[in-house]
Design a protein around this nucleic acid. Structure first.
Length: 420
RNA sequence: GGAGAGAUGGCUGAGUGGUCUAAAGCGCCUUCCUGCUAAGAAGGUAAGUCCUCAAAAGGGGCUUCGAGGGUUCAAAUCCCUCUCUCUCCGCCA
């Protein structure tokens, strides 16, 4: 969430900036609700202060005296009044909080203005040397594709979007995950293996709730299957206070991710392009506020390094205001080129949330001067497996169903070529 | 799943209706003392929020003793519900 004081004092500016995002957010209603709640708060606190002062005086009176009985009679009236004011404050507060949670983060001034993904800005492309796509083929049309990726049985066992990875493809997936984690370690990230279910408080802290409830699988008893390891990992330090000298904190985690992908359909969803369950390594950082945008660039380089090592062509997009996520202040997407499908596939999203998540998750640090401030949080995929796998299968196809394995994976996968 | 015991500040832990403005100890910070160190002395040491103030400092109000509700003029304290932790038993990868 935002800083309410900043919201009050820079109302017009905040309102204008939020309008460039595509989230429904009634700033005027928020402001009115905030004013109403403050008024109710003051009335309630004044009444409570009066009540407590009299109550303190009562304690020193003889319980059998007439003065005692008289004071109790007065206090009964005051008590009723306080309770009435407290109830109306609580109602106003609840109304405000519900509204406040629907206010998205403010986009950073550097973010390009745009209404939809059409407004995203391609910063650059990177291509490996000796790029050769002469045998490229959409991965779902490769000979014997179903041997390595069994969608039919996944469909039988669970449903659409839950494939089995078989044999050499399963080992390739495992190798990719291991490579991603190893790289993260070399870049200074501490590995976590997180819970795959989280509670509502965690999902709220990272901004999935209440905004994206429909995108998550719920267990029906208060838990949600994580849509990304970002959720458990960012919440790892929820309600905690760092010492300034301990920042930045850098953690990474591999996890399965579960997404309903409600509303997605058509050509996009073929093969590995969009799954309900997929594997991903996530990078998360907690940094000092003045370092966050610098850290975002470094984080993006960490993710880009993986694509370079895998010798995959990719491009970097700067996401515009209209395509920016709810808690995001600034975001880059990395898209890999899938030569068979002739299209770009998003494999990483690197984002700075400024203090928006930290405020919700109550993650602070003590400055050298001893004051408490909210940290800034960042995260980025490093990377999402299925689309990287799709690009490898398509770009590295040797023309006969065999797939060349990038040499960087040789520590985890002995074969230089896999056969579907 | 069954039985029992618990949840208090950075930590340990006292507190069974009103002087709780939460004891005491530990830790930490400041100052003093002392060749150095150790020891000692004095003081300080939660967070959130609202008000005051040009701002900061300072001051004041309110909230918070696992969470929520209730009883009462008044709740850390009594009652109810929930969550979590620990011990024992059962089951189990």
């Amino acid at each position: 969430m935002l800083d309410i004081h900043f919201f009050r004092e820079h109302f017009d500016e905040v309102k204008a900036k939020l309008a460039t995002k595509h989230f429904a957010c009634d700033c005027d209603a928020v402001r009115a609700s905030d004013a109403k709640r403050l008024e109710a708060l003051k009335a309630f606190e004044a009444a409570r202060a009066r009540q407590q002062a009299e109550s303190k005086a009562l304690a020193s009176l003889d319980k059998t005296s007439e003065a005692f009985k008289e004071t109790v009679r007065n206090l009964k009236v005051l008590s009723d009044e306080t309770k009435r004011l407290e109830a109306s404050f609580k109602a106003a507060e609840a109304e405000f909080q519900a509204l406040w949670l629907t206010v998205p983060n403010i986009p950073d001034a550097s973010v390009p203005i745009g209404k939809t993904s059409q407004g995203n800005k391609e910063l650059y492309q990177r291509h490996p040397q000796n790029e050769d796509f002469s045998h490229a083929c959409p991965h779902y049309e490769l000979p014997n594709f179903e041997h390595g990726l069994d969608f039919a049985r996944g469909n039988k066992v669970t449903g659409a979007g839950f494939p089995f990875y078989v044999g050499s493809v399963a080992r390739l997936v495992r190798a990719l995950i291991a490579f991603f984690l190893q790289s993260a370690r070399e870049n200074g990230y501490t590995e976590l293996l997180p819970p795959l279910l989280v509670n509502a408080a965690s999902a709220t802290a990272t901004g999935q709730l209440p905004d994206k409830e429909g995108q998550m699988y719920g267990t029906g008893d208060g838990f949600y299957c994580i849509p990304t390891a970002e959720v458990p990992v960012t919440n790892f330090f929820r309600d905690e206070i760092f010492e300034e000298r301990d920042l930045p904190k850098k953690y990474c985690a591999y996890s399965a991710c579960f997404r309903r992908e409600a509303g997605s359909w058509g050509k996009d969803v073929r093969g590995l392009n969009r799954l309900h369950q997929f594997d991903k390594v996530e990078l998360v950082q907690w940094v000092r506020p003045e370092k966050s945008f610098e850290a975002l660039e470094a984080l993006r380089k960490d993710a880009e390094g993986l694509l370079q090592a895998l010798e995959l062509p990719y491009r970097v997009l700067e996401i515009c205001t209209g395509d920016l996520g709810f808690p995001h202040a600034k975001q880059y997407d990395l898209e890999v080129w899938a030569a068979g499908q002739q299209r770009w596939l998003e494999v990483s999203s690197c984002s700075c949330f400024t203090d928006f998540q930290a405020r919700r998750a109550n993650i602070r640090y003590r400055t050298a001067e001893g004051t408490l401030k909210f940290v800034h949080t960042l995260n980025g995929s490093g990377l999402a497996v299925p689309r990287v796998l799709a690009a490898l299968l398509e770009n590295n196809h040797l023309g006969d169903g065999r797939i060349r394995v990038p040499s960087v994976l040789k520590s985890w996968l002995l074969e230089e070529v896999i056969q579907l």
